[in-house]
Nucleic acid binder design. Structure first.
Lengths: 345, 345
DNA sequence: CTCCACTACTTAAACGTTTAACTAAAATAT
DNA sequence: ATATTTTAGTTAAACGTTTAAGTAGTGGAG
C-alpha cells in the first residue's frame, strides 16, 4: 500500500492545525468557527491529496467499528447463504460491513470465532449458534456485546432473537400429511440440544396426538450432524429399507431432506404414492425432484432484516428488555405429499 | 461494551511502565531485558485483569489488519458460497478474518464495495469482479492493494489470478455432446464483456468446427444477468419453443442451467432423448433432475486455496510478476447427455 | 578510582483521529 | 479609553499500541 495522505499532510499544506482540518472535514466548521475561506482551502487540499480518512484511527478514537459479525453453521448451506445475502445487503445499505464466520457445528470453532469478533471489536453480532454453546452466548452477554440470535435460541439465556414458530408450523405440516391419508408417519430430526429442533419434534408429536396416530420408538429417527457430513447415514437407510416402513416422512431440515431424497432415489421408492414427504426449509433440489417436495418456507427476508433491526436498536442504545421476534413461516404444498395429485397425474 | 483493561492498567497495577508490559506480553522480554520476576508479575496481572489486546490500536500501529476482503457476485449462488466457505475456512486457519461483500453484477455497488475495503485497510482482496469493472481493478492496483482475481479475469490488467481453462473444458463438453450424436447444438451464454465467458463461447465454437457442425446466428443465445433475476427469460423459451429447436444444449453457467431446466420441464421436453444437456458448473438441482445433468466441475477447493496462497505470498512481500494460476476442471458425464443410457433405461 | 559494559528498565515518539479547553486578535459595547 | 464579547482559530489530551533511544544503577577490569 502506498503511503496515504493524513489530515496532518493537509494541515501542513494549508498551513493550519490538524484540528482545523478535522473540524472542516467533519462538517463541524461552524461549531469550531473556521472561516469560509480557510475551510475551502482545506477541502481543496483534501481533494488534491486524495485524502481518505483512516478508519482504524477513527475507530480507535470513537470505539465503534461499523462492523458486525455474522456467525452461522455453514455458509454453503442455502438456508444460511440466503440469510447471509439478505443481511449483508441491508448492512451495506446502512454503512455497516459484515465479517463472516462459520462454525460447522463445532463448539470450539464457534468459541474461537466469537473471541475473534470480540477482539476485533465489532459493534454487534448476529449469530446462529452451534449446539451446546450456551456458555459462549452468555460470555457475549457478560462482555456487553450486542448480539441477536437468529434461527436458533436458548431459552435459558434471555436474548434478542428472531425465530419462527417451529412448533406450530411443524404441527401444521404433519397435520397435512395425516389429512392426506398418510397414517404411519415418522420424523427424521437432528440429535441435538437445540430447542428449535425440539420444538419441531414437539409439533410433530402434537399433530400425531391430535390425529390419534400411533407414535412408537421408531417414529422419531435421530441423526447427527456428522452423519450428514459423511457418506454414511445408516439410520435413514435402515428406516426406509425395512418391511413396514413409514408411509409419511417429515424432515426436520433441508440437510436431512436432501440426504433422505438420495436414499429414496436409491431405493426407488415412489413419491408420493408409497411415501408422502414434507421437509422443513427449502432447497433447490426439492423443486427439481420428480415429485416436487412440499416444504416449510421460513420468511428469510423478514428474518434477516428483523435481526439487523434488532441489532441496530441495541447499537443506538435503546436497550430495554430482550425482544423475541417471531417471523412468518408457511407450508408450501406440492406433489410430494398429495396422494390425489399422484392419481390425477 | 464494558470497559476493557489496557496495558496501561496492567502497568499501573504492577508499577512498571507500559513499555515493559508491552514487551513482556509480546514475548520480547529478553530483547528488552525485563527481569524474570517482573515479567511474571506482568503476566499474572494480565490474567487477573483479563487483558485482551486492542486490535484497532495494534492495527493502527502496525498498518496491517489481518483482514481480507472477499467480493463476489452473490453469496446465495452455490458456486460462490462454496468458494466463500473454502476461503473463509482457510483464512481463519491462518489467523485472517474475512469481510464479505456482494456486487450483484452492479458496477456501482462493486465500486463502493472496493472503496469500503480500501478505506478499512484490509490487507488484501480476493475478488470475482463485476462485468465492466476494469477501472476499479486498476484502481486497486494503483492503490497498491494486494488482490487476486478469481474465476473472472481481465487480460488487459495483468493480475494475480486463479481461473480454470474455460476454453478447453468447454471444447471438451461440446465435443462430448457431438460424439453422443447431438448435431444441432446451441449454447446459452451471458451477454457480457467477461473474458472467461467468451472463452467458453470460443471453446464451443472450436468444438463445433472440429466436428464439422453448422454454426448459425441461432447457435449462441445470449441472455443478461437481469433476465435471469426476473421471471422473464424469453430468449431461452423462444429457442426451445420453435419447431427446429436444437437437439443439444450447452449452458454457460449454473444460473442459466437452472433457468433452462425450468423451461424444459415446463415444455415437457424429454432429456436426453429429445435434447442432450451439459452445464458449466454444478448445482444441487442437477443431481435431482430425473436425468441428472452432465456438468463441468471446477475444482473449487483448489481455486479457493490457491487464491489465498497467492494473496498471502503478496502479503509476505514476495512480489514478483503477477501469477495466473490455472486450476483443474473436469467434465462429469451423466444421463442428460448420453443417448445410449436413455435407451438402456 | 575511573571507565566501561551490562542489566533492567523508562521515556517518548509514532500510528491518525477527535474534541474539550484554551488563546490571541478583532469587533463591539459602555 | 477600557471592558466585554466574538471570531478564528490552536493546543493538547486521549484512544491503545509498538519500539527506538535513552538512563540509572551495578559489577568488573585496568
Amino acid at each position: 500500500m502506498k503511503k496515504k495522505a493524513s489530515i496532518k499532510d493537509i494541515a501542513h499544506l494549508v498551513g493550519v492545525s490538524i484540528a482545523s482540518v478535522s473540524y472542516v472535514l467533519n462538517g463541524k466548521e461552524k461549531e469550531a468557527k473556521i472561516g469560509a475561506e480557510v475551510a475551502d482551502r482545506i477541502r481543496a487540499a483534501a481533494i488534491q491529496l486524495n485524502y481518505q480518512p483512516n478508519f482504524l484511527a477513527r475507530s480507535l478514537q470513537s470505539g465503534t467499528t461499523r462492523t458486525i459479525g455474522l456467525v452461522m453453521e455453514d455458509i454453503s448451506n442455502p438456508f444460511f447463504s440466503s440469510l447471509a445475502s439478505i443481511i449483508e445487503k441491508k448492512a451495506q445499505e446502512n454503512g455497516y460491513t459484515v465479517i463472516i464466520g462459520c462454525h460447522y457445528e463445532n463448539i470450539e470453532k464457534c468459541g474461537k470465532l466469537l473471541d475473534t469478533l470480540l477482539l476485533r471489536q465489532v459493534d454487534g453480532i448476529i449469530i446462529s449458534p452451534a449446539d451446546g454453546t450456551e456458555s459462549q452466548v452468555k460470555k457475549l452477554q457478560q462482555a456487553g456485546m450486542p448480539y441477536v440470535l437468529v434461527d436458533r435460541y436458548f431459552s435459558a439465556i434471555p436474548s434478542n432473537s428472531v425465530t419462527i414458530n417451529n412448533f406450530e408450523i411443524s404441527r401444521q405440516a404433519v397435520n397435512h400429511l395425516a389429512e392426506e391419508g398418510y397414517h404411519n408417519i415418522a420424523m427424521i430430526a437432528f440429535d441435538s440440544g437445540f430447542e428449535h429442533m425440539n420444538d419441531r419434534v414437539a409439533g410433530f408429536l402434537q399433530a400425531m396426538k391430535d390425529k390419534g396416530l400411533p407414535v412408537g420408538p421408531a417414529s422419531i429417527v435421530k441423526v447427527t450432524f456428522s452423519d450428514m457430513q459423511s457418506g454414511e447415514d445408516n439410520a435413514i437407510f435402515k428406516l426406509l429399507n425395512k418391511k413396514n416402513r413409514p408411509d409419511g416422512l417429515f424432515f426436520a431440515n433441508n440437510v436431512i431432506g436432501s440426504k433422505a431424497l438420495n436414499i429414496i432415489n436409491q431405493l426407488k421408492i415412489s413419491i408420493p404414492s408409497e411415501i408422502g414427504l414434507v421437509c422443513f426449509d427449502e432447497r433447490e433440489a426439492f423443486d427439481y425432484f420428480y415429485a416436487p417436495l412440499s416444504y416449510i418456507q421460513q420468511d428469510l427476508k423478514e428474518m434477516g432484516e428483523k435481526s439487523l433491526d434488532l441489532l441496530f436498536t441495541q447499537l443506538k442504545g435503546n436497550v430495554s428488555q430482550p425482544a423475541s421476534i417471531v417471523v412468518g413461516a408457511k407450508l408450501v404444498i406440492r406433489q410430494s405429499s398429495v396422494l390425489q395429485g399422484a392419481l390425477a397425474d
